[in-house]
Amino acid sequence: MRVAVVGKGGSGKTSVSGVLARSFARAGHNVVGLDCDTNPNLGLSLGVGDLETERLLSLRDQIDEGEQSHAHTWDDILQTYGTDAPDGVRLTVVNRIDNPEPD
């Protein structure tokens, strides 16, 4: 089952996503948190902490550096570009924008 969480900036999308993912996991489900924000921070609300959230490099960065996403299975992607959050939730990040574009 896939759940998309949307809303205005600051409405609480990440807090709700994090708590919801943890709640599903506690109810016995296999859960993946997919952070689609270009400023990823779902890790914080999932409880993996500031440093690990920062460390989790974006999939997009690495795919851009030559690896093709379709060369991987979904499981590979989760394995290579994911991290473990409490209650067995697996977290992965889609992309991020950290730097200015050249003129």
Partner: peptide, 25 residues
């Protein structure tokens, strides 16, 4: 269960293929 935390606003939702998810919160 995949919980996808999208970017603020409706941009990502607009670009998502149709029927990409079973639930939208």
């Amino acid at each position: 269960v995949i919980v996808a935390d999208l970017e603020a606003g409706i941009g990502t939702l607009t670009r998502l293929p149709e029927q990409a998810v079973e639930h939208t919160l």
